[in-house]
Design a binder for these strands. Sequence first.
DNA 1: ATCACATACCTAAAATTCTTATGTATATAA
DNA 2: TTATATACATAAGAATTTTAGGTATGTGAT
Lengths: 115, 115
Amino acid sequence: MSNNNLIKGSLQTIILKLLEENERMYGYEITQRVKELTAGEIKITEGALYPALHKLEAEGLLSTDIQQVDNRVRKYYSLTNDGQKEVTSKMSELQGFVENLQRILTPDLKPGFNI
Amino acid sequence: MSNNNLIKGSLQTIILKLLEENERMYGYEITQRVKELTAGEIKITEGALYPALHKLEAEGLLSTDIQQVDNRVRKYYSLTNDGQKEVTSKMSELQGFVENLQRILTPDLKPGFNI
DNA sequence: ATCACATACCTAAAATTCTTATGTATATAA
DNA sequence: TTATATACATAAGAATTTTAGGTATGTGAT
């Protein structure tokens, strides 16, 4: 939800990174964690999240493990070995992108341009 | 081009901000400027740029002015008043988003969490 | 009791935005 | 004359997201 058309492309990175920090999480938990970490400013929609999780699993980056908790089904996701490698890769990709964005958008800050 | 599926959503902001800094630019110039500012790491494709420029013009954020330079047609874009306002808006939106991303992705850095 | 809300999963149509692939045209360097 | 650079443009397809539904259980309020 929310007015964020910017998440595009970074949802996978968010999922992978949260799973690196938390060992295992289920879908709904991810939406709540993101909402909590951003004071409600970023809301991951279920229509975006679940297909993304299924895709990451199909690519072999995540593994699942279904559990019954209080008569409710929870599908826990964890990183595979490939998934663990992908976190590092995706994180440096995102960091690089944000740095490039800053080079474009903040012409004042140009490290390396000293007289 | 390049392997950036991350630009999604920030291309408009890039265009608007470059035009705030440069008064007027033409399409091809924008692609070259971005390539130059990011050491070739971000390449705006024409298939993405031109439709984006046309959309911003249709929304009344950009105005155009066609000129002949060395037997070549250049379509210069500039910010309208509405466009000028939108730059500020889009920039703070993007900044807010990047901050939220950091809150999600870098659990170490949590300003405001002091004992 | 029933209604709204939270928890928990899911999918499908539509919208958006991008990549890839073209097309047109001029100028220049190999 | 062939490739590359400049300069515009569009269209098909891919990828990702929003919107809008659907199923089901538990809980607090009316």
